[in-house]
Simulated scan of single mutants.
Amino acid sequence: MRRLLETLVDEGCVRRSTSGDSFRLALGLRCLACDDAYIRNLVRQTREDGFGSNHGDWSEQKKIGALAVAVGSNDRVLASLNVIYLSKAIAAKEAVKRFLPELKQAAEEFTQALAGPDARTALRARAHSRVSNPRG
């Protein structure tokens, strides 16, 4: 993790905090959060796709790609699960193909666990049916 942070410091994406051995986002990335139109579009696209992604989209982080899915309960997002990868090591379409199904499955399991014992029983039954009938 420290190596990644040092690389991001070199690229200007994060900076060392003057108050200790921690890191802070560089101003350029924080400005994205202040752009209402950008955020509305990002949320809309994420909802349409069913996952969030960064495939080197930010000029400050061209080397890094990521996929993320929401974990929620009662129509609220409580957390996210993500995979981060080097864009040069794997193409965006391949990352979606390889990682997204597992991320979505894990998020569904977390969501069901948060929903209570009845939902967990249904999840186990569904998982058992997938093992018994993997194609269908």
Rank of each mutant, 00 (worst) to 15 (best):
L5C: 06
T7W: 05
V9L: 03
C13D: 02
S17A: 12
T18M: 04
S19R: 14
G20W: 05
G20D: 05
D21T: 05
D21Y: 00
D21H: 06
F23G: 01
L29F: 02
L29V: 07
R30I: 10
R30C: 09
L32M: 06
A33M: 13
A33D: 09
Y38C: 01
Y38P: 00
R40T: 07
R40V: 03
R44T: 06
Q45R: 13
T46N: 00
T46C: 08
R47T: 09
G50P: 02
G50A: 05
F51N: 07
G52L: 13
G52P: 05
S53Y: 11
G56Y: 08
G56W: 09
W58N: 01
S59I: 13
K62G: 10
K62N: 08
I64E: 05
G65M: 04
L67H: 12
A68P: 07
V69G: 07
A70E: 09
A70F: 03
S73G: 01
S73Q: 10
S73V: 05
D75H: 00
V77Y: 01
V77R: 09
L78C: 08
N82S: 15
V83Y: 01
L86N: 12
S87A: 11
S87E: 13
K88M: 03
A89S: 12
I90K: 15
A91F: 03
A92D: 15
A92T: 07
K93A: 13
E94W: 03
K97M: 09
F99A: 13
P101Y: 09
P101I: 10
E102C: 08
K104W: 01
K104I: 03
F110M: 04
A113S: 14
A113T: 14
A113E: 07
D118Q: 15
R120C: 15
R120V: 15
A122S: 12
R130G: 03
V131R: 15
V131Q: 11
V131T: 12
N133Y: 09
R135E: 10
G136N: 07
